[in-house]
């Protein structure tokens, strides 16, 4: 009974939404011209990066805070270790992972740099970094993480702290994350570099702190 009601309601919702979207007029506010007009002063050349780290930078600031909070939540929940035993890995697989990991680090740096003028940026670069860590872990080359030590803690929170420090300094100047146009490019690159490292570590941590296989301490 519940199943039929829910499926029926979902179907009705889809039909109503499709009808509504079908005769939707043009958008009342078009943000594209204002993004294009301010792109020159934003410090980067790619509009999405400009929106992410300049025009709506507080979104990104809160986002990295949310990520950190999620990681803290996972650490707070804790997890009991079950069977940590992992069989011997294929040496060919391990060698491929050893070759791939440094290449992924280079790709991450390229993505970070490319974010200024084409699709790319801190999030993509951080995701690639995290993927390389997960790859190394799954091939048995890197143990899962337990409680983070001091260095890892600084790494995890560094991006957020750098971003917060820049925001605080700019707040003294008079506006929330309103970069002076002359230094906008350098400030964005600084924030993005910190974000890349922290995002990579946080995203990897989301996987590695949950992993069973704790070969050692981090």
């Amino acid at each position: 009974m519940k199943r039929i009601a829910v499926v029926g309601a979902a179907l009705a919702f889809i039909v109503a939404l499709l009808a509504a979207m079908g005769d939707l007029g043009p958008a009342a506010i078009d943000l594209r011209p204002s993004v294009a007009a301010n792109l020159a002063a934003s410090g980067v050349e790619h509009p999405v990066t400009a929106v992410l780290l300049n025009f709506r930078a507080y979104d990104t600031l809160l986002e990295i805070a949310v990520l950190l909070l999620a990681l803290l939540g996972i650490l707070a929940v804790g997890n009991q270790r079950e069977s940590g035993a992992v069989g011997p890995m294929d040496p060919l697989l391990q060698m491929l992972a050893r070759i791939a990991a440094p290449l992924m680090a280079i790709v991450a740096i390229y993505l970070l740099w490319a974010g200024a003028f084409r699709p790319g940026g801190a999030f993509q670069a951080g995701a690639v970094l995290a993927a390389s860590a997960v790859l190394l872990h799954l091939t048995g080359l890197m143990p899962g993480w337990r409680q983070p030590r001091v260095r890892l803690r600084w790494g995890l929170s560094g991006g957020f702290l750098v971003f917060l420090a820049v925001a605080a300094v700019l707040l003294i100047e008079g506006g929330l994350l309103r970069y002076p146009p002359a230094h906008a490019g350098a400030l964005i690159l600084l924030i993005e570099s910190g974000l890349t490292i922290s995002l990579g570590l946080i995203l990897a941590g989301l996987f590695l702190f949950l992993s069973d296989d704790d070969g050692g301490e981090s």
């Binding site: 943000l31 990520l67 939540g73 989301l206 949950l210």
Partner: peptide, 29 residues
């Protein structure tokens, strides 16, 4: 394409990943 919704969706994807990981951690516990 409008860059503003794209940037917001990019933010949303990352937050969704974090929320999923937290949910998985809770489920595991």
């Amino acid at each position: 394409a409008d860059p503003v919704p794209q940037a917001m969706v990019l933010t949303g994807i990352v937050v969704a990943v974090a929320a999923t990981a937290l949910a998985l951690g809770l489920v595991r516990r």
